[in-house]
Design a protein around this nucleic acid. Structure first.
Length: 634
RNA sequence: GCUAAUGUGGCUCAGGGGUAGAGCAGCUCACUCGUAAUGAGCAGGCCGUGGGUUCAAUUCCCACCAUUAGCUCCA
C-alpha cells in the first residue's frame, strides 16, 4: 500500500498509482488542468508511477515547475518536427527557459524565418497525433550504443558526462526518442498553443571554441489567449525600444564613430540632469558627501586594487610619459585613495562618500545594446565606511533610499540576497557576521527576498534590487555589496574609541546602477511618455493664429519664471497639426491659446494623464503645472 | 570576440550590372486657420568603407567597419 498525502492534508491509499490517477479521482477538471506533479519536493510527470509514500501536489501550468514541464515537452515536439522535416540533423539540448523554450540543432545550413511555418505545421501534426510520452531507462553502455546508432554524437557526449550513479532516461513519442531527464506531459496532444519566435546561433555547451549550432527559440502556453498576450508583450516591448524612441525623441544617439559610447543630445541632457540633481539632493539629505575621482590612474593603483590581474581584459589602457595607465572601469580604487588621504576616527562613521563616476569597460562588440549595454557609463556609486556594529542600520538606510527612488518612478521591485561563493576571501566568521547583518536589515524592513546561495562576490555578500517595468520585465539596478577585500588591499584604517587602529567595514552601493541604463529603462517603462517632472519639454503653448503669439510668449515666460520648461509653437499651421506633433513628441502639457483665451487670460489645456481639461485661467494652469512638477506626479 | 542577417537622402523603406526612387521630416509660397496630418513647389544621396571582377558596380565577389538577433559577458 502506498500512502499519498495531498495538499489539504487528506491521505489516500493505493496499490499502484500515478499522479494522473489521483487527479482523475478527485475530478476530471483537475486532471485536465494539471500538467505535472510534485512528489515530495520533486517535479515528476503525471503518468510516472508513484512507488512510495509521499506528499503529492498537482501542478498547473502557472505553478512552479508546471510551465517548464509543459515547455519541455514542447521542445521535444519541436525536435521531433525538425527531425521529420530535415533528415540529417543532430540533436543537442532543448530546455525550457523563462518565457518559452529552445532546441539546439546541428544541421548543414541555417534555419530561416521562412521555414517557421513549415516547422510549426509539422509540430501541429505531432500534437494532433497525440503521441504518448513513454519513459524508459537504459544502462549507460546501452544508452551510448543506442544514441550512437541514431547518429546523435551530442547525446552520446551528454551521457558520457552524466555522473556515475545517474539514472539515464529516454522519452519516446511516436518514432521520436530523446535522451531526457524529464518530466513530461502525458502526451503531445496536451500542448494547446505554441509559436516559433526566432533562430540564432549558439555554441555547443556555450563554449566559443566548439561548434556553433542552430538554436530555435519558441514558446508555448496553456491556451491561445495567453500565447497571444505574450506575443503582444513582445510587440509592445519592440515598440518601446529605447534605441528607437531615444532617437525619435532626440534624447541620445550612438554613432558609428563611437560604438558603445553614447552621445547625449540636449533633450537627453535635460533628463539626465534631472536624474542627477534629484540624486544629489536626496543623497545630501541622507548625509552623503560627494567626490569626483580621476578617469585615468596609473597601473600601480590597479595592481593594488586587484583589477590589473582580474579585470585587465576589460580595461582601456594607455601610455603617458612611458608609464602605464588605465581608464577606470570602476570607481572604488579612486575612492579608496580619497579615504586614505587622512586619518579617520570612528566618530566620523558611517562615512558616506558618493560619486557619479564615468567608467569605461571594454565590452565585446556583440554585447553592445543601446544604452543598456555600453562601453562607458556613469555609476551612481557610493562607498560607506563604518564599524561592524553599524552594518545593519546602515544597510537599512540604503534599502530605504533605494525604495524611495524606485517608488518615485513607479517601479515595483524584487530583492535578492547572494551569499558566499566557493571561491572567496575572508574568514568564515566575517562572512557569517556580514551575511547575518544583511539578512537582519532585510528582515527588519520586512522585505521579501530570495536567497541565491553561493552567488555573492568573492569579496562579500550582496543584496540586489531587480525592478519591474510596466510590461513585466525585470532589470537589476540597485545593489549593496559588502567588501572585505579592498579595505585589506588598501590597508584602510580608522582610530577606534580604544585609541587603536582598526579595519573599517566598507560597502559599495548603487541606486540607479548605471544612469545610462536607467534612462533606457525609464524610456521603455513609460514608452517614451516621460512623466511631467522628467520631460525635457514640459509644456508647449500652441497659437491658433499669428495674432496670439504675444500672449503665448507671455504664458511661456510666466511658466519659465516658475522653473517650468515651456516652449511656444507659433508656426502658421492648423491647430490639429500642431497638437498631433506635440503629442507625438510626448509633451505632457499642451496649452492652446486663441482669441477667447487672450480675452479672458486663460488657456485651453490638455495633458497626457487627464486628457482635455477645457479652458482654465492662466493662473490656475500655472499653479497646477508647478504643483504636479514638484510632486513628481507620474 | 563567435555565428547569421542587414547597411540606399534626417527618418521609414522600394529598386537593381548601364552611374537612383517613394512617403514622412526640411525649406519656399499660398491659406490666418479652434483640438491627432491644408495645398503647391523646391532642395537633399560618392547606395557603410576599401579592394577585386567587368567596357561599365550602388547592384556580383572578397575584406573591413557598424548595426540587429543570439552565444558569451554583465551596470
Amino acid at each position: 500500500m502506498i500512502k499519498i498525502t495531498l495538499k489539504d492534508g487528506s491521505v489516500r491509499e493505493y496499490e499502484k498509482v500515478t499522479a494522473l490517477d489521483v487527479a482523475k479521482e478527485i475530478s476530471e477538471g483537475l486532471a485536465r488542468v494539471s500538467v505535472a506533479a510534485k512528489v515530495d519536493d520533486k517535479v515528476v510527470g503525471l503518468t510516472e508511477p508513484i512507488t512510495k509514500d509521499c506528499t503529492l501536489s498537482l501542478l498547473k501550468f502557472e505553478d512552479e515547475g508546471g510551465a517548464s514541464t509543459y515547455r519541455h515537452t514542447s521542445s521535444h515536439v519541436l525536435a521531433h518536427a525538425v527531425k521529420n522535416l530535415y533528415g540529417k540533423v543532430a540533436l543537442a539540448i532543448g530546455p525550457s527557459i523563462e518565457n518559452g523554450f529552445y532546441y539546439d540543432f546541428d544541421i548543414d545550413g541555417v534555419f530561416r524565418e521562412e521555414d517557421f511555418d513549415k516547422i510549426e505545421a509539422e509540430m501541429q501534426k505531432i500534437i494532433d497525433a497525440d503521441y504518448e510520452e513513454v519513459k524508459f531507462l537504459l544502462p549507460r553502455d546501452e544508452a551510448i550504443r543506442f544514441m550512437e546508432e541514431k547518429n546523435e554524437p551530442y547525446k552520446v557526449e551528454l551521457i558520457r558526462d552524466l555522473p556515475e550513479d545517474a539514472e539515464i532516461s529516454f522519452y519516446r513519442q511516436g518514432d521520436f526518442v530523446d535522451l531526457c531527464a524529464g518530466p513530461h506531459l502525458p502526451s503531445t496532444g496536451r500542448i494547446k498553443a505554441f509559436k516559433i519566435l526566432s533562430v540564432a546561433g549558439a555554441y555547443w555547451r556555450g563554449d566559443s571554441s566548439r561548434k556553433m549550432l542552430q538554436r530555435i527559440y519558441a514558446t508555448s502556453y496553456n491556451d491561445k489567449k495567453e500565447l497571444k498576450q505574450y506575443l503582444f508583450m513582445l510587440e509592445e516591448a519592440k515598440k518601446r525600444d529605447h534605441r528607437k524612441l531615444g532617437k525619435e525623441l532626440e534624447l541620445f544617439d550612438i554613432l558609428e564613430e563611437g560604438p558603445g559610447f553614447p552621445f547625449f543630445l540636449p533633450k537627453g541632457m535635460v533628463l539626465r540632469n534631472i536624474l542627477e540633481d534629484y540624486w544629489r539632493s536626496e543623497h545630501v539629505k541622507k548625509g552623503y558627501q560627494e567626490i569626483k575621482t580621476p578617469m585615468i590612474l596609473n597601473q600601480k593603483l590597479w595592481e593594488t586594487s586587484g583589477h590589473w590581474s582580474n579585470y585587465k581584459e576589460n580595461m582601456y589602457t594607455l601610455l603617458i610619459d612611458d608609464s602605464d595607465y588605465a581608464i577606470k572601469p570602476m570607481n572604488c580604487p579612486g575612492g579608496m585613495l580619497v579615504y586614505k588621504q587622512k586619518l579617520h576616527s570612528y566618530k566620523e562613521f558611517p562615512l558616506r562618500v558618493g560619486e557619479l563616476g564615468l567608467v569605461h569597460r571594454h565590452e565585446l562588440s556583440g554585447a553592445l545594446h543601446g544604452l543598456m549595454r555600453v562601453r562607458c557609463f556613469t555609476q551612481d556609486d557610493a562607498h560607506i565606511f563604518m564599524t561592524e556594529e553599524q552594518i545593519e542600520s546602515e544597510i537599512i538606510g540604503v534599502i530605504d533610499l533605494i525604495d524611495q527612488f524606485y517608488k518615485v518612478f513607479g517601479f515595483k521591485y524584487k530583492v535578492e540576497l547572494s551569499t558566499r561563493p566557493e571561491k572567496s576571501i575572508g574568514s568564515d566568521e566575517m562572512w557569517e557576521k556580514s551575511t547575518t547583518a544583511l539578512k537582519n536589515a532585510l528582515d527588519h524592513k520586512k522585505v521579501v527576498y530570495k536567497i541565491n546561495e553561493g552567488d555573492g562576490a568573492f569579496y562579500g555578500p550582496k543584496i540586489d534590487f531587480h525592478l519591474e517595468d510596466s510590461i513585466g520585465r525585470t532589470w537589476q539596478c540597485g545593489t549593496i555589496q559588502l567588501d572585505m577585500n579592498l579595505p585589506e588591499r588598501f590597508d584602510l584604517s580608522y582610530i577606534g574609541a580604544d585609541g587603536e587602529k582598526h579595519r573599517p567595514v566598507m560597502i559599495h552601493r548603487v541606486v540607479f546602477g548605471s544612469i545610462e541604463r536607467f534612462i533606457a529603462i525609464l524610456i521603455e517603462h513609460y514608452a517614451g511618455a516621460l512623466p511631467l517632472w522628467l520631460s525635457p519639454e514640459q509644456v508647449r503653448i500652441l497659437t491658433i493664429s499669428e495674432v496670439h503669439e504675444n500672449y503665448a510668449n507671455e504664458v511661456r515666460d510666466k511658466l519659465t519664471a516658475a522653473g517650468i520648461r515651456a516652449t511656444v509653437d507659433a508656426r502658421n499651421e492648423k491647430i490639429g497639426y500642431k497638437i498631433r506633433e506635440s503629442r507625438n513628441e510626448r509633451v505632457p502639457y499642451i496649452l492652446t491659446v486663441g482669441d477667447k483665451e487672450v480675452e479672458t487670460e486663460s488657456v485651453s489645456a490638455r495633458n497626457r494623464r487627464e486628457g482635455e481639461l477645457g479652458t482654465i485661467s492662466l493662473n490656475d494652469a500655472v499653479l497646477k503645472i508647478i504643483s504636479e512638477n514638484e510632486e513628481r506626479i507620474i
